[in-house]
Simulated scan of single mutants.
Amino acid sequence: MRNSWKQRDPMRVELGECQVKVAVIGCGTMGRTHAAEWKRMPGIRLAGVCDAQEGAVRSLAGRLETEAYEDFDRMIGEADPDIVDICLPTHLHKEFIFKAARTGRHVICEKPIALSADEAEEAAAECKKQGVRLFIGHVVRFFPSYADIRRKAAEGTIGTPAVLHAKRMGANPGLAKPWYANSDKSGGVILDLMIHDIDFAQSLFGRAVSVYAMNRREGNTDYALATLRFGGGEIAHLEAYWGFPGPFTTGVELAGTGGVLRFNSENAVSLRVFKAKETASGSGVAAAVPVPKSPSTYNPYYLELAHFADCVRTGREPEVTVEDACSALRTSLAVIESARTGRPVKLKDINAREGENRHVYR
């Protein structure tokens, strides 16, 4: 059967002068989250949602007052979106990036970009070939507390940043969605959860040059620890945990030559600065400087998606580039390899190109 859509020029309309049409494929947790944010965003029309599960797609479409589709080609032909937002299981990312790009649509895809470095590079190359933009949803960059840490590091608040500690833990999603429990489809806790903090660490220090990790899986527990080293001597210690019995929890601490920046989601204060303070005796005394909570009008997913839409309209480079997403994937795969072998893994020269191991916070 012939497809109902025709390939088009992705810039056939002046996106800066009209409403941008977005279609979301995948009506699971992330699809519902993205669709709800698109629905309330000025200048955006949620043209449709798509999922193979009729109940899920009709429920979401009804709640958000948009069209429901169970077939991707039909959605493209009838909804005619400018942007396709892919919120599918990881093992389907490459397939649908190709599908969307080949119809001339710009693509937003949840992280990770793919399951392998080859798949990621092929997806990026296909979008470039078709003349469409590709954006990968590493949303932690848009969480206000994490953005505050990057900004204060860049301002020199704690001197020269040197050591990062980050943790991310929650219930095992494989209990609700079996594909998460299948490493061939999700990549496990490292590729699905720790990759958030891998990307954040690399946004601070540049590309990692080596990793050393462990990963324990037993029953409903998938737990990983990793140490990343960077070209300037910086170190990141990362922890990721599926099977945590408490609420979803994140924390990050960035230590520098002049102080510490710290955030923990369990605390009421978004970000605390513990800065070294010289006293009359010359001894250093840690002083807590509370930073007001960030406004909650727009959540990080809204900020991320609005940023991507603006990049489509204006042609500007995104906060998270395709190269960033590919590098986060390569580093995550190196972490998996280190945990498998019990040995440190040096990343290949592709992660050590000139300019990629700069101190990003400067």
Rank of each mutant, 00 (worst) to 15 (best):
R353W: 01
G284W: 06
L238N: 09
P292T: 00
E121G: 00
V163R: 08
G315A: 07
V189P: 05
P295S: 09
E37A: 06
A56S: 11
D80Y: 02
T331L: 09
C127K: 06
A125I: 10
E323R: 13
L134N: 04
W242S: 01
V285Q: 15
G77S: 13
I336D: 08
S183K: 07
G16Q: 13
D310M: 10
G259E: 00
V57D: 00
R358L: 13
E354L: 13
K21F: 11
E304T: 14
F72P: 01
V252G: 01
R316A: 09
N351F: 09
S327V: 05
F205A: 06
G232F: 01
R217E: 08
N357K: 09
F96E: 11
E239I: 09
L193Y: 00
M75A: 13
K99P: 01
C50W: 00
Y241A: 03
E323C: 04
V289P: 08
V49S: 03
N267A: 09
A52Y: 02
E17Y: 13
G31N: 10
A56N: 09
P292W: 01
P295Q: 00
A125E: 10
E14M: 13
R74A: 11
V211D: 04
Q202Y: 07
A171T: 04
L305A: 15
P290L: 12
H91C: 11
R168T: 07
C18F: 08
I44S: 08
L175W: 05
G219R: 08
C326T: 10
K167D: 09
S327K: 03
T341G: 00
L64Y: 03
T314W: 06
M169V: 02
V132M: 03
Y361N: 14
H106D: 06
F98D: 07
P300R: 15
Y298E: 10
A339N: 07
